[in-house]
Design a protein around this nucleic acid. Sequence first.
RNA 1: GGCGUGGUACCCAAGUGGCUUAAGGGGAAAGUCUGCAAAACUUUUAUUCGACAGUUCGAAUCUGUCCCACGCCUCCA
Length: 470
Amino acid sequence: MLKLFNTLTRSKEEFIPINGMNVLMYSCGPTVYNYQHIGNLRTFFFEDILFRVLKYNGYKVRYVMNITDVGHLVSDQDEGEDKMEKSAKQLGKSVREIADHYTEIFKRDIGLMNIYPPDVYSKATDYIQEQIDLVKCLETKGYTYFTSDGVYFDTSKFPDYGKMAKLDISGLKEGSRIEFSEEKKNITDFALWKLSPENEQRQMEWDSPWGKGFPGWHLECSAMSKALLGNHFDIHCGGIDHIPIHHTNEIAQSEACSGEKFVNYWLHGEFLDMGNEKMSKSSGKFVTLQTLMDKGYTPMHYRYFLLMAHYKKKLKFSYEALDAAKSGYNNLSGKILNLRKDISSDEAISSSEKKNDFKSRFLEKINDDLNMPEAMSVLWEMLKDGDLSSNEKINLAYDFDMIFGLGLESVQPEKIETDIPEEIRILTEKRNEAKKKRDFKSADEIRDEIKQKGYEILDTKDGIQIKKSD
RNA sequence: GGCGUGGUACCCAAGUGGCUUAAGGGGAAAGUCUGCAAAACUUUUAUUCGACAGUUCGAAUCUGUCCCACGCCUCCA
């Protein structure tokens, strides 16, 4: 039985799809006006785990993720500039170029992280008509009103507004920002269609029954999920910050138009806690996957790091913690490599009962609201077990890796340095001579010398290994 | 000001009434192996869960008060 924490009810619930073994899932993807930072990546990683766990349980998943390439303003509250237009202006490029560029990097990053791509990436700009239709639908049903800058959704007409977020609307701070809300009837009302400013030519604008303009940010997810998954589907996920505004507004729009329940299970991933290194994109200072790679970490190190915490808890990022993950991942790879060597000489001790025991414990953990830390602990316990054969261990590890996604099957032995400088070669020879003569003192001295030159000499069973030091 | 989350070993982090006098990873220490290192393997590393009261046969887990940190409401995944 798969249990998931549903933000709607704030409790773990048994997951029961609407339609048998077919699951419809939507997740809020990136706004492609800039790089995705490692915090964003945490959310996509969490969605990947969810996707993998669903598949592991035998569900057929249709998975849609949107790419926001228009309409996401600098503020969630329909104020300020369009993020895309702003970024384009700064870089002197077209909005399309910006969107394509960052979309590409996003796809590259999640590929490196072993995050499965969705079945469909839906771009907001490819669904303008659907968005206009949705506004029309809301207009017909009397949920909209006009202001001088666009069409707004009247949240007071939707009785359950803010239910999921447990919003206390009367307690929302008034007057923190007023300029644009002057004409709003309620503080929570939001834009469905924004009219282009009269004195400004936008790169992205479309004709609509209400005038030339562009869709409000929240609209795209409602319109696209409706188009690709239907009015009512199983899972919608995203970052925890989306609960109070974005997802709240999506629910209001979608349910107001369709008259049906929108989504059964809402799942939200917690933030990565950067401590002092606060990562607001607006400040331009944030850590990307590339930043980590430049510092000598691999995407799998970061993935392993994320696996150590539960998705619903804040995870404290630090390079110290990332180092721990790096070592952990490297040790794990080493174990896998050793097991592979053992397989041939393995006497197939039959302990299938124990094997099944680990497997069912693992399943229990991943199905308990995607408890990766516990699942990882099962993995390690299994690898250290004294009764299982190497064969069984490696099979289980590969099986578990369908969830972890650490690429264990393709782990390769560390490359042995091939182009060793002549100087090091000669010194290595000299050391061998000394060793043969059992002159260990000078042998050790030479090893130290080599070490100072950045290489390490290791005596192994199979001979000498020369390694470049880190 | 409003709303919310969290404080578990040196670090990251599970566990949320008895199976646990607290998983797992990293780090550290000791041992086996080795001429010595490295690797590998084995073992050790919180009688204690922010503080103080209380509920209970029983609490890290529930309640209250306090302290601290953080998030959102104002760009955020």
